[in-house]
């Protein structure tokens, strides 16, 4: 590739990335508006703060202190400014900064999501390719039939079944909690202890099984589609090895649609962690959110909403940039080809 071409691509990529980042910010602004509205529409915060015994002066003082008399837009702007620095106020229930509570809980959820996401992508892609290439083999057929279970069983049921089998009957793995964690100061990890790793197994399978089967079925159907394409026939007609036809020519072409869905699925792994965390009493943000709902702890709920949307938007951004890296046609659409 010539140097000029490289620079042109870099510039295009940068412009594209900037545009996508801008769009992401817009999405976050809208989600922020929703999160902010919760404070205004789910009860009056002054009621929550002052309780039953209060005077009119108290109410007015608190309203002024908290800036609740300011115009809507000013309040929204203040909320955004604070949210951007991770300040979501005090939890109604724990009376501690929400940012701290979330920061305490986030490592548990992120580690769980990381392990189950990696598992889902790895096994999903490998099994998808396998069942597409060996589509008439009995192993592929067994995998495909079994995958229906993963798609159709609800997450909590899978979790309970796993607990019953591996914790209650066999007694191999713990049924709840994170096990021993190592505190690194800013992060607590379960990766460094045997009990922490053991505790990760069942929740990760529970959380990732649905995504894995979904990715697998998607990879398989995309791959079958691509294997029928003319350029695959032409690759075969040129005498290329099956390995090269399947992996160099077919796999890359299956990736674009697979990345789209996989990106969205990773977002929902974090969001769906709520159910898994409840089943396994996993001390993550999902469990925190469920408890916050029970106690109408609005600041925690708002912070959780923002956190999840940042994750979704971030993953989508990465996905879009990946397209750009994989598909040369996207790069060319902006500049007219010769």
């Amino acid at each position: 590739m010539t140097l000029g071409g490289d620079c042109r691509n870099c510039r295009l990529m940068l412009a594209y990335a900037l545009r996508r980042v801008l769009q992401s910010f817009l999405v976050l602004l809208v989600v922020g508006l929703v999160a902010f509205s919760m404070f205004r529409f789910v009860g009056d915060p002054v009621d929550n703060l002052l309780g039953q015994e209060r005077t009119q002066e108290d109410i007015e003082r608190v309203r002024a202190d908290l800036g609740l008399d300011d115009p809507f837009l000013v309040q929204y702007w203040t909320f955004l400014k604070k949210a951007a620095t991770g300040d979501f106020g005090l939890s109604y229930r724990q009376a501690r900064p929400v940012g701290d509570i979330i920061a305490e809980r986030a490592p548990a959820t992120l580690e769980l999501a990381l392990v189950s996401g990696t598992m889902a992508i790895f096994f999903g892609v490998v099994l998808g390719i396998f069942t597409a290439i060996r589509r008439d083999g009995w192993v592929a057929n067994v995998i495909m039939s079994t995958s229906l279970i993963g798609v159709s069983l609800p997450t909590f049921l899978i979790g309970i079944l796993l607990i019953y089998l591996f914790s209650v009957e066999l007694g191999w793995l713990p049924s709840f909690g994170r096990g021993e964690v190592v505190d690194l100061g800013w992060w607590t990890t379960g990766f460094l202890t045997a009990s922490g790793l053991k505790a990760l197994i069942l929740p990760s399978i529970t959380l990732g099984l649905y995504q894995m089967t979904l990715i697998m079925r998607l990879v398989r159907s995309e791959m079958l589609e691509v294997l029928r394409a003319d350029y695959i026939r032409f690759a075969r007609a040129r005498g290329l090895r099956e390995k090269s036809v399947n992996f160099r020519h077919a796999l890359k072409n299956t990736l674009v649609p697979v990345i789209t869905v996989t990106g969205l699925q990773l977002g929902s792994i974090i969001a769906f962690a709520i159910i898994t965390e409840t089943v396994f009493q996993w001390p993550g943000v999902g469990l925190l959110f469920i408890n916050a709902i029970q106690f109408v702890d609005i600041p925690v709920m708002a912070a959780y909403l923002m956190l999840i949307s940042v994750m979704f938007v971030g993953i989508n951004l990465v996905v879009d940039l990946l397209y750009f890296a994989i598909d040369p046609r996207l790069r060319a659409d902006r500049t007219k080809a010769h």
Binding site: D230, Y231, R248, N253, D327
Partner: peptide, 8 residues
């Protein structure tokens, strides 16, 4: 359609 779109 007979050339692979993702390879030069």
């Amino acid at each position: 359609t007979s050339l692979n779109p993702l390879l030069t």
